[in-house]
Design a binder for these strands. Structure first.
Lengths: 154, 154
DNA sequence: TTATTGTCTACCAATTAAATAGGAATTATG
DNA sequence: CATAATTCCTATTTAATTGGTAGACAATAA
């Protein structure tokens, strides 16, 4: 149930883009520096987000990335799915792209898949009602307070 | 967001125990054979479940495992937590045992932790309202139909 | 034409998950 | 008591995944 580092990077990069106006582009370099993310790794993250239709890019000098849709239109679920794949607890229980998992051939696995499909749907529902706009709002709020205070907040 | 093989084994082993009466014990060997789980691996799984207070064991000849609590008293959440650890999407966002994760020192991580703590709580809520009794019921149902039919059911 | 930027693919390193191994401790039973 | 069956515990090995790096290539603005 753990979020990969990759998708955390994606979330941070996207709030970074969400903070800019829609028209202006931000370079990989700038995002990497600001968010302290390994540049070449971030490259792959953004490429995946582009493939998922969440961001758009322009190349060449002065190029960079921008959101392709409004922050309120992108959900946490969209982002995590784009990076980490289906949210289903089991490969075979994915609504998007169900894949027969090993050990899924016999009867026992079948009822498990049933339960897990439902669990996956509920998890998706949770993640799909939190939008990038929400994240940006929270990020902006915490930006305003002192880092030191936040660091030790429970 | 994927379930480990280990916890799938745990779920299957437990439904196996749930199917037996509370008083009778089932040996690792029997469970492993019935559920086609590597015996030595299952050993570790059951040990973890025991440490979590979900099952009890008796050693020596004629020994084995049995549930320590009623199937309706154990939740999916309990089981998965016992095997895979906290359900939180981020180590730092665990209600049970929050651990400072690398990159969690600066301001950006803090708002992420906030969101993820909430997400984790909701996921927990989902998993904690499904009980082992529910799983056993489903397992019993699918047992009654033909394996072949189930195999290709969507 | 050149500097800057994204695109793509392959690769390597580190970590984690899955499985295996083997001996110690415990207990029922002949 | 001796033995076989069983859990307990820890270490090791193997496989898979994740995290990160590298470098050649393509596009574009100036």
């Amino acid at each position: 149930m753990r979020l990969s580092k990759k998708s955390v990077y994606a979330l941070r990069a996207l709030t970074c883009l969400g903070a800019s106006t829609a028209s202006e582009v931000v370079s990989i370099h700038a995002i990497a520096r600001q968010e302290r993310i390994p540049k070449k790794f971030l490259e792959q993250v953004l490429l995946a987000l582009k493939k998922a239709g969440i961001v758009q890019s322009s190349r060449g000098k002065g190029g960079g990335y921008a959101l392709r849709v409004a922050p309120a239109q992108v959900t946490l679920g969209d982002i995590i799915r784009a990076i980490d794949g289906p949210l289903a607890p089991l490969p075979c229980a994915s609504a998007v792209s169900p894949v027969k998992c090993p050990g899924c051939l016999d009867v026992e696995s079948c009822w498990l898949r049933g339960v897990m499909t439902e669990v996956g749907a509920e998890v998706s529902a949770v993640l799909d009602h939190i939008t990038l706009a929400d994240l940006c709002r929270r990020a902006a709020l915490s930006q305003r307070r002192s880092p030191h205070v936040l660091m030790y907040e429970i």
